[in-house]
Design a protein around this nucleic acid. Sequence first.
DNA 1: CATGAATGAGGGTTCATTCAT
DNA 2: CATGAATGAACCCTCATTCAT
Lengths: 209, 209, 209, 209
Amino acid sequence: MAEGGFTPRLPGNVRKRQIVQRTLALIAEEGIQGATMARIAEAVGISEPSLYSHFASRQEILVSALDLVYERVKDITRAATDPDALERLRQMGRYHSMLVAKEDPQYLFPLFEFVAAPPSTGLREALGTRQMMPLEHVAATVDLAKQQGTISEDVDSMELAGMIIGCSWAEGVAHLMGIAGKWDADVWARMLDLLLASVSTGNKAIHCE
Amino acid sequence: MAEGGFTPRLPGNVRKRQIVQRTLALIAEEGIQGATMARIAEAVGISEPSLYSHFASRQEILVSALDLVYERVKDITRAATDPDALERLRQMGRYHSMLVAKEDPQYLFPLFEFVAAPPSTGLREALGTRQMMPLEHVAATVDLAKQQGTISEDVDSMELAGMIIGCSWAEGVAHLMGIAGKWDADVWARMLDLLLASVSTGNKAIHCE
Amino acid sequence: MAEGGFTPRLPGNVRKRQIVQRTLALIAEEGIQGATMARIAEAVGISEPSLYSHFASRQEILVSALDLVYERVKDITRAATDPDALERLRQMGRYHSMLVAKEDPQYLFPLFEFVAAPPSTGLREALGTRQMMPLEHVAATVDLAKQQGTISEDVDSMELAGMIIGCSWAEGVAHLMGIAGKWDADVWARMLDLLLASVSTGNKAIHCE
Amino acid sequence: MAEGGFTPRLPGNVRKRQIVQRTLALIAEEGIQGATMARIAEAVGISEPSLYSHFASRQEILVSALDLVYERVKDITRAATDPDALERLRQMGRYHSMLVAKEDPQYLFPLFEFVAAPPSTGLREALGTRQMMPLEHVAATVDLAKQQGTISEDVDSMELAGMIIGCSWAEGVAHLMGIAGKWDADVWARMLDLLLASVSTGNKAIHCE
DNA sequence: CATGAATGAGGGTTCATTCAT
DNA sequence: CATGAATGAACCCTCATTCAT
């Protein structure tokens, strides 16, 4: 019956990537619930059922989109290359501010869409799993800073890692709430600086006689 | 679904509050998109069209639910009564931790549902507006602390207020991601303490020596 | 948005009956799988979603249709009124033949659609439940015939009832297979007669000297 | 779903038989409508379009499945080998009971799936055609019994054949309705016995006295 | 204030089938 | 002989909303 669509047949991997990317864009624009199969199909330029040639379900597409978000997160850690681990932590903060500021549609808004996904969707669990990786990366960097003697040995690495990433989350929430304009763009970098200063060995805050 | 014909006619205000409360509960369980008119009506025990006797649209109910969330936020500021403004800021942090820890279904999850609501719904704008109030309250408290001499005059009040509230946001995100278990419950209070210590006049961190 | 359809608003009960009847007709024509919500709605002259104002699901409509089939079955027992119970059994057989012969679209084909419904639909269970009633009615009539002395006391009433109804089933299958034309219409009545003759006290077959 | 690239190329006939068998199994489990091309392909372990290398359409596969059902029916006649034709008829009945009792997934449920197939599918016609063969076989056996003098010459052979097979159909319907448990398994054999007794020359029922 | 009946739009998913490879 | 990519049509069902009562 079908007279053989004229849509160019793309190799599976290419199409798959295409689908995930457009989905992420849709999530950024209209939220997860706005990323409907119909809209995804239209954005990609294929028919709705064709999506099922590449993914078993909408859920699977969404999880793949989440993976793509964490590609951006990985960029953060990849971009911080300073040999000094403490400085590296500051670099991550600044890179994150940049990511948020340029409103990359593949990062901030999609990420929080997953944060707020109803538990029944299973997406939040998927998110928690993925977040562990950057968290542990930051904790490892803190460890390194301790070895390098720039961060006090007393500090719990995982705890500090949480606080560091927490600054980024705070930044994200402020942007999403549309009140980021209340401060200049560096405020979250300064928040991170304050935090790091509190735990760096250079800081006399606590031991300041 | 309603349990039959004789739903007692409740005075308008009571019904309205009932509707908003059940809606908020639904948002907590299933997200904003899960708070459908059908489910709200069923939860309240009236028919679907009856909801329109009390609210002009679903949107209006949702915004009212958001107001209810900010009632909880107001509780935070109300609960912090210490005469020492700096201590009051710490109280707010601890009260917030408590609110998050007890998983009050009328606070954390609904709040972030609104954070992540697609722009087209207008809910995020509504959220931004409401968030200004607690933000300014915290800034005012910082100002007071400066007058009381416990926080350094150099500090920008609004900026510090953002950081303080940012700690709460970070706490919320950690919980929603399901990774809060990585730390003990006090970590976010300690983050706030570090921050406040950095700016308190007792701190020699910056001016040390 | 909806500008208030022009379909006349019918009282609930009337619509419900209408829906079930048209559904049964569709089942007769195209099988259970042919009774789609779209076709039912079209046959009734209302929109598809409106069906859900009257029934919670398609399954519920189908079960109601099954009930309607068994209204026809009840007609069989109602139509047999001869004071002589043995004769009454013969009347039932003849009435059934008539029902089958006139190809009442509310009886034979729909009935067997339910017989052949896949187990996963739950419809066959519903069928078994409903079939018990006529079965027990026939068994009771056999009992009565035994009291009246026309059927031998040795016979197990339920067993004979099964055989009697079995003749009707055989008749039904023959029709559905499209090979009923191989015999004249009375063949199944004669089958029933042979059976009843075998167990009637007038029969010397077993006790014959 | 298939477990990967290297499905061994099977000779055409083998594959064909395989396809038909799995299809029949699917019909038994989920009905004709449950035997979708996707499920058949998965069950066989080849891709969906590959099915079209062996059969022109789904319809063709289904008809082949029907043929396979009638292989089982042929088994019935093949299994009845007693030289006495009357006894042979009884053997067929008992063999059929066995077939039904062991719930052979290639017989009863599939058969009735075809009985109840909507007319528009053409499957019921195909069924009628095939049913003629066993019917005529039974009629021929009745004829033989008449020659052997065990069944009365007065009896119409085709009519009696219908009744005999009718007992089997009744048995099948009882099973499908899930009410077979109401009787012991021999009831249908006894029904057949009663019937045959009525027409056998040994029977004094009619000529009694 | 409350409801039963109704709806257009759209939700994700499955269907048998086709075609280029 | 076999497949991956693709599709139009259809599936059951839910959505927020309206209107007469």
